[in-house]
Design a protein around this nucleic acid. Structure first.
Lengths: 339, 339
DNA sequence: ATCTATTACGAAAACGGTTTCGTGTTAATA
DNA sequence: TATTAACACGAAACCGTTTTCGTAATAGAT
């Protein structure tokens, strides 16, 4: 086992000082051509690579960014990570991923773990529990320490920091409008509680489209599921006790699952019931029928977040200006709506 | 902005030495009760937290593990990450995720970035390009430096390290056997080239089952796609020019996509053609018809990998014994086969 | 021959901790 | 009263870098 070589080792071997080695390897003008060549050759021969930790300690920059998300098995988050990773990597940053699993406590613990020097900044999306609780002290503490934070998708207005969201209201509005234009009149909405910022915005967009088109907002056609887990009973009940000609769902799994249930009841999609779902992921693409979906552009969101964060990390100025970038959703039309 | 407090700050404020503060905060017997209480109270008041980087530098342990995988948008990898994260987090480790995007160069760069002190060990799955090239020098270098490595799923025999795989051959064997038992005789296989270790093993299992049941191995019924990207043309051609009553695919996307194509041709699943796919992910569950799948138990794989890695990291002994854990796949029966 | 400006390098501090070892003070013992 | 042990704390080294500043040696100018 050949252990890593350090500046000290090189210095000892070549009988020069550590400072000289350090400078020589940075091609400093201070060091003579001969010495530099000798040291550089030696370093290359023994494959010297500076120790990241030592450098981090010295210049208080880790070149790591912390990503805290509720769930990695959601396709949307996965694409966001990819976007973050792509941009961050190109800038020489590594990505530390922590999962809150929708739990407030885990979110707090993860942040505390990372906030003690491990990372230069956070990119995060709030856990549902955090949004329900409305307790953002862990975020406050971090920002007060001067650690930059970018919130994406599941955000809060209580924290001053950069934010990246898609226009969820617009997305739901576009989807609902599309359904109305296709002659649908009894459009149901399957969503979570309003505690999730995105669900709330989507519900608003849905209602806005109805109202603008002088359709009644029938609250009984809105099914609020109490958690992210699919609740077969509730959905089945909902379908059994209401009639509808279109369904809008706030996420992919709700959509695909609902489609299955309604197909089982003998309805044809899209002839009898149209479906539009949020998040254009793998499921939408490969569902049967394939799903008309509101694309969230997760990868773009990730890239944007990473860009905003790294800009802030690397900016010299101590400005306290925060911006919220609003990405536009797109409607990807497939076979769950009439073309 | 209240900046982080250090030992030095506390020492200065309380007019004691840094060593005293350090010891007091560790509740050392060396320090008097009075002094300890004073220091601990002060530290709590100012929310002192030791700097991770400094600690890492001191004891040459980062409590970070590096995960290098080809693609995060594959559901399988995503579940593995979750398993890793779960176990690692419970042990106080953070997970740094790097994506090779199936590229050899990226894999090398990522490993080099991390190998210079950023992590205590690697968990990785080889990129397809790496497996094609057969160049594992980056892995060799890392292991020679004494950095523990656990390879999972896409592994190589050329590197001595811990490994976690599922018995891919067995999985394919089980699936094929099931199809045969259901009376299928012309069973096609859709796979990638043999350069992917898993594809190779699966192909072997497929053949083994055929041979054991005295069915001919018809090479023309094996479609080898040249990359992980779905190639609609090749698959369509394949279906147009061959007749078959069952299809086994080496991954979920191949399966779901193939099912769509064959349904478009008017075949009924499972009556005309049965399908079994590898990796029991979201797609399998929500496909239409839902997919009988060989479950890879990604989360379990991740947990196991993390456990093996952390054991090695924390083991005092300098043993050089490596083990390969073989997880058993399970057949999850759904509607794409006859029940 | 003396003074000055380069050149080429080393010493040391700093980043923020941990840990070993030494030492002054007090109390117990002979 | 002199010796010793226990106690409580501080000094300093160390982890691996970077960087400032000081300085010996040489060369050039006067």
């Amino acid at each position: 086992m050949k252990t890593k070589i350090t500046l000290k080792d090189i210095a000892k071997e070549l009988e020069v000082s550590i400072s000289t080695v350090s400078k020589a390897l940075k091609n400093s003008e201070e060091i003579s051509r001969d010495t530099k060549e000798k040291i550089q050759a030696f370093a290359k021969l023994y494959n010297y690579k500076p120790n990241n930790i030592a450098i981090s300690l010295k210049n208080k920059r880790t070149k790591n960014i912390g990503v805290v998300i509720p769930d990695i098995v959601h396709h949307f988050f996965t694409t966001v990570i990819r976007g973050i990773e792509k941009y961050a990597n190109a800038k020489g940053y590594n990505v530390i991923v922590c999962l809150s699993e929708e739990s407030f406590d885990k979110e707090v613990i993860n942040m505390e773990m990372l906030a003690n020097g491990s990372i230069d900044g956070f990119i995060m999306s709030l856990s549902s529990e955090t949004q329900q609780k409305g307790d953002f002290n862990h975020l406050k503490e971090v920002t007060e320490q001067g650690i930059p934070v970018v919130l994406f998708d599941r955000i809060t207005n209580e924290i001053d920091c950069d934010k990246v969201i898609i226009d969820d209201q617009l997305g739901a509005y576009m989807a609902t409008k599309k359904l109305i234009e296709q002659g649908r009149r009894k459009i149901a909405l399957i969503t979570t509680g309003d505690y999730l910022s995105v669900s709330k915005a989507r519900t608003e967009g849905y209602k806005k489209a109805l109202i603008e088109n002088t359709l009644p907002v029938d609250e009984s056609l809105i099914l609020k599921l109490s958690s992210m887990e699919i609740d077969e009973k509730s959905i089945t009940n909902f379908f059994d006790s209401h009639s509808m000609d279109a369904v809008l769902c706030v996420n992919e799994i709700f959509t695909v699952f609902s489609m299955k249930l309604i197909q089982k009841k003998g309805f044809h999609i899209p002839n009898d019931v149209s479906f539009i779902g949020f998040t254009d992921g793998l499921l939408s693409k490969y569902a049967n029928p394939s799903l008309t979906a509101v694309a969230q552009h997760g990868e773009k969101m990730g890239e944007t977040s990473a860009q905003m964060l790294i800009d802030k990390i690397e900016s010299e100025v101590e400005e306290e200006t925060f911006q919220t970038k609003i990405l536009e959703p797109t409607l990807v039309v497939r076979d769950s709506t009439i073309n």
